[in-house]
Amino acid sequence: MSSRARRIHAPMIVYFDAIRRAGSVREAARRLNIASSAVNRQLLKLEEELGTPLFERLPSGLKLTHAGSTFARHAIEVLQDAERVRSELEALQGLRTGHVEIAAVEGLSSDLIPNVLAKARERFPRVTIGINVMGSGAIPQALVSGDVDLGVAFSLDRSSDLQQLSVASFHLGAVVPPDHPLATNKALSVSACLSHNLILPKSELSIRQQLAKAYAKLPVPAIETSSVELAKQLTLRGLGVAFQTRIGIERELAHGQLVHVPIKKPMPLRSDLGVYVRAARNPPVAVHALADIIAAEIGLHAAREGDTAF
């Protein structure tokens, strides 16, 4: 949320949202660069006008009451709408300014997101961008809470809280060094990999869940990790067979350091990479612009493995 968008609305709404995000009046004041007394005064004024406490005052900090949670939804919509209006007005003037917060899974950090940022800086140099790397499971809440504008993640469950702007499908495969016994295969089954040391994603990750559906009794792996980057580094060192899409290992594949063998037996395993926003929200111009760049980049990656995107 830009400072200019914040100035459109009453300070009490802006301060309330800052307190909600920070968890304390003091930290909210620090982030806003405003005296704590001024922030607290606006909060008390807002609670008085609404006739109900919005936060529980706990030793560990402030926690939203039920009334506070209800008002938070209103505040998020108001402030996001202010950003959209500001962005559209400036777009009409040819300025193309704004700020976009993106949440993306770790595997996109190696190639896809850097490509997106390079293109965004070239086309929209006055748009500022924040990148938040988080797991797929945390991205929906970040979108719903208004902490981020765009989410890019694999295999998110469909929800009435989220709107899917675009999607492309990618093969899940076994990832091994080129001298590994599995590297010469054109396709594999999960069972064919079980006689080798496995580097499996943690159970909360979508890839692990898909592997479990394909092979109900996965063995105890040599290594488990929630980090795609760590799994890649371990595979490069010959410590086991990892599983993922080609996203995140593009450079290693191009340089012949790794081989990606699709899992196609008894049926192909695929993972959908989508771009998401909070449902029932009309995003600002800058958000739409970034979403289009991300969708196009995902489409390029999908085309490289023979898929048609979207």
Results as ranks from 00 to 15, higher is better:
N282V: 13
P114T: 05
R86M: 05
I293P: 06
A103R: 02
S271V: 07
S69E: 15
N33D: 09
Q257R: 13
G107F: 08
R237V: 00
S271Q: 13
E224I: 14
F170T: 04
G151R: 01
V176A: 04
R251T: 14
G173R: 04
Y215D: 01
Q164W: 00
N185P: 00
V220F: 13
L95H: 08
A303C: 14
H180E: 01
N132R: 15
E27C: 00
K63C: 05
L54T: 08
H9N: 05
S36W: 12
L92T: 11
T235P: 06
A254P: 10
L200W: 11
K119P: 00
G130T: 12
Q244C: 13
L112S: 11
L234C: 09
R57S: 07
Y15C: 00
G23D: 01
L211G: 07
I34V: 15
R304L: 15
V39P: 02
Q257A: 12
S169P: 07
E122Y: 15
Q93Y: 07
A302I: 06
E56G: 05
Q257H: 14
R30P: 00
V127S: 03
V277I: 15
E229D: 15
F170M: 07
P53L: 13
A309I: 08
A254F: 15
S195G: 08
V39S: 01
V25N: 02
F16C: 01
R123W: 09
I13Y: 11
Q210W: 02
L62G: 02
L182I: 03
T97E: 04
I131C: 07
S87I: 01
P284E: 05
L54H: 10
R251A: 14
L58D: 06
V175Y: 03
L205I: 13
H66E: 09
R304P: 11
S226V: 09
E56L: 15
K232V: 08
E47T: 11
L64N: 09
A183Y: 05
N282L: 14
I249M: 04
Q80W: 09
A138E: 04
V220D: 10
N132T: 13
E224A: 14
R4F: 00
S189L: 04
T225C: 12
E77Q: 13
H260P: 03
I129W: 12
I247N: 02
L89G: 09
M12C: 07
C193V: 03
F154C: 04
L188A: 02
E47R: 00
S195Y: 00
V220H: 15
V277R: 03
H288L: 08
P266C: 08
G51L: 08
P219E: 02
V285S: 06
Y215A: 06
L269F: 02
F154V: 04
I13W: 14
R20E: 14
I247L: 15
A303W: 14
I129A: 08
K202L: 14
R41A: 11
G306F: 12
L92S: 12
K119A: 10
R4K: 07
A67M: 11
A212I: 14
H74E: 12
R84C: 01
P266F: 13
V190N: 05
A280M: 12
Q164P: 03
E48N: 13
D307N: 14
M1I: 07
S69L: 14
Y215N: 05
V105S: 07
